[in-house]
């Protein structure tokens, strides 16, 4: 009951906020929700399942492009386009995930990076289907019961995708499945000796989280009424990695904190220093990793732990 109230309350606040914000701030807000949704599913893949994949943002792009192409070029209704786009992302992820079962660490990163690059090449060369380097623009927004989903309503859609993703991830993380994923991350050989099917568990983690990315990408596609290759390029793929590492990889809260912080930093720094904001992120990344490899959440735990230890010493 308490959980229902907490989740309901969070949903209510997240859905009311966009109506209170001016247009620009509302746009910043809904894009932040998009990044948080991606960061939490990427955290599960990278921080919990231990797969150093760089294809996560590409899957968001696959969801975005597929839903737009299906609706605007094939005339597929929204309610059918959603499962079809998720299905396509799932099938592609399933295929790519076989690489994940054979490769680890640096090599998996390279293989998934190649896939992400291939996706961009296909977008660039896709002709009328993908709109080439300019992407697809000015398509019609989806209608639900004859009502056009736009502006703050898209923020609500993104908030719901985010909460659904989080609820889904928290459930599996606290189950036998989450433990199996972390066991593989920590020691694959020992996990197999405990009866964990390493290959199957890895394929499931990759496929599930990639479909989640596609789900967030679908909503994102209607934010600016445009999808284009640079958005889904490598810069953002690495940004996602920075968010999870700076926040604290393996921690859901860390992923949320990392995504919000880096988005805010980018939005605040960019008007003043332009492209140099990337340097700011780089410095932050290095500093956080040097201080505490477990990221900001790890630093917070250290501070709280020290305070508690101090109190314990104070009263013998």
């Amino acid at each position: 009951m308490g959980a229902a109230i907490r989740w309901g309350g969070a949903a209510l606040i997240m859905c009311v906020v966009p109506f209170l914000l001016p247009l620009y701030e509302m746009d910043v807000y809904r894009k932040m929700l998009f990044w948080v949704a991606l960061a939490i599913s990427y955290n599960f893949l990278f921080g919990i399942a231990g797969q150093m994949a760089l294809s996560h943002f590409a899957f968001a792009g696959i969801g975005a492009y597929t839903v737009v192409i299906l609706m605007t070029q094939a005339g597929v209704p929204l309610l059918l386009a959603i499962p079809l786009a998720l299905g396509l992302a799932g099938i592609l992820a399933f295929i790519v995930s076989f690489a994940a079962t054979r490769l680890e660490g640096f090599y998996l990163a390279l293989a998934t990076l190649a896939f992400a690059q291939l996706f961009i090449v296909i977008l660039d060369e896709g002709g009328a289907l993908t709109g080439g380097t300019g992407g697809l623009t000015s398509y019609k927004l989806p209608l639900v019961f004859g009502f056009e989903i736009q502006g703050p309503w898209l923020a609500i859609a993104m908030a719901l995708v985010l909460l659904l993703t989080l609820a889904f991830l928290l459930r599996i993380d606290r189950s036998w499945y989450g433990r199996a994923c972390r066991a593989i991350r920590d020691n694959g050989e020992a996990a197999a000796a405990m009866g964990v099917d390493v290959k199957r568990t890895k394929i499931m983690a990759f496929t599930l989280t990639s479909v989640m990315a596609a789900g967030a990408g679908m909503v994102y596609a209607f934010f600016d009424n445009t999808v284009n290759p640079p958005v889904f390029g490598l810069e953002n793929a690495f940004m996602l990695l920075f968010m999870v590492i700076i926040g604290g990889s393996g921690s859901h809260l860390g992923a949320i904190v990392g995504a919000v912080l880096l988005r805010l930093l980018q939005d605040m720094l960019e008007p003043f220093v332009g492209q140099f904001h990337v340097m700011g992120l780089g410095i932050l990344m290095v500093v956080v990793i040097l201080v505490q490899p477990k990221g900001l959440v790890g630093i917070w735990d250290d501070l709280v732990g020290r305070k508690r230890a101090g109190r314990r010493k104070a009263k013998p």
């Binding site: 920590d186 050989e189 996990a191």
Partner: peptide, 10 residues
């Protein structure tokens, strides 16, 4: 295992 192999993050 001969050399302990715990799951260190758990």
């Amino acid at each position: 295992f001969q050399h302990n192999m715990p799951f260190e993050g758990m």
